[in-house]
Structures are given as C-alpha cells and as structure tokens.
C-alpha cells in the first residue's frame, strides 16, 4: 500500500490502462478486454473483448434450493465502448502488493 500510493479509487483504474481487465456489469454480464480509456462515469473503451452472459434457468417445479442451471453465452468484439452506468466492478490485471499474477485475468479462450 505504501509503495504504490493510491489516494482515490480511480487511481486503481489508471494502473489498468493497456492491461487486460475484468469488468462485471449489470444484467449478469462480464467482460474481459484490454482497457484503453475511461472517464469519471466509468464509461470504458476496451479492445479484444470477450463478453460472458449468464442466463439462469430455474427449472419449473424444481424443489426449492435445487441449483438452477446456468447457461453461459459468450461472444467477442474487437473494439467496444461500454456505458459506465452498467459497470458494477472492475478487477485489476495483477495483484499490486506482490506484483504477481495471482490476480491475472486469463485472455479469452480461442474458440
């Protein structure tokens, strides 16, 4: 904490510029991509983006507590503007404390 001084939350995002980040969005969506720009609303511009959409199907008549089936839809986009009001969380590409990759966001699977 002392060596990499962070005075405000946006400093954290600044450290992620040109790195691959993980973004959690409203509507059960997640993105990974390389961050190129952001602003105070958390509007983002990212490239090489993979979007994951979680679609939770609760089986009809299933007993309570039975895990719902989760369908995952993925798609890729080359260059994407993301409107900030949908952003919940941004995860950094690496751990700042040990500079290791324990927090590494894996690149999108090549399918």
């Amino acid at each position: 904490m002392e060596n990499s001084s962070i005075q405000e939350p946006f400093d954290l995002i600044r450290l992620s510029l040109s790195e691959r980040v993980f973004v959690k969005l409203r509507g059960d969506r997640e993105l990974t991509g390389i961050l190129h720009a952001y602003d105070g609303h958390m509007n983002l511009i990212m490239s090489d983006v993979e979007e994951t959409i979680m679609i939770v199907d609760v089986a009809e008549g299933a007993p309570a507590g039975q895990p719902a089936t989760v369908n995952v839809a993925k798609r890729k986009m080359e260059m994407l503007f993301v409107r900030g009001d949908g952003v919940i969380l941004v995860r950094l590409p690496y751990c700042r404390i040990c500079r290791c990759s324990c927090n590494q966001v894996s690149p999108p699977s090549r399918t």
């Binding site: 904490m1 405000e8 939350p9 954290l12 995860r91 950094l92 751990c95 700042r96 324990c102």
Partner: peptide, 25 residues
C-alpha cells in the same frame, strides 16, 4: 466508488471469487 484489496466476493455467505484489487462503482 471504492478500491478494495484482497477482495473476496460472497454470495449468500459462500466465497464465489477472489480478486487482488477491485474497483466498485
């Protein structure tokens, strides 16, 4: 807006993810 370190995501009391650093809008 929040910057968290050593972040654990909990859903219904179960850890679902661990992030080193996270920014929450």
């Amino acid at each position: 807006n929040i910057a968290l370190e050593q972040t654990e995501e909990h859903v219904n009391g179960v850890v679902t993810n661990r992030y080193g650093d996270a920014f929450i809008r």
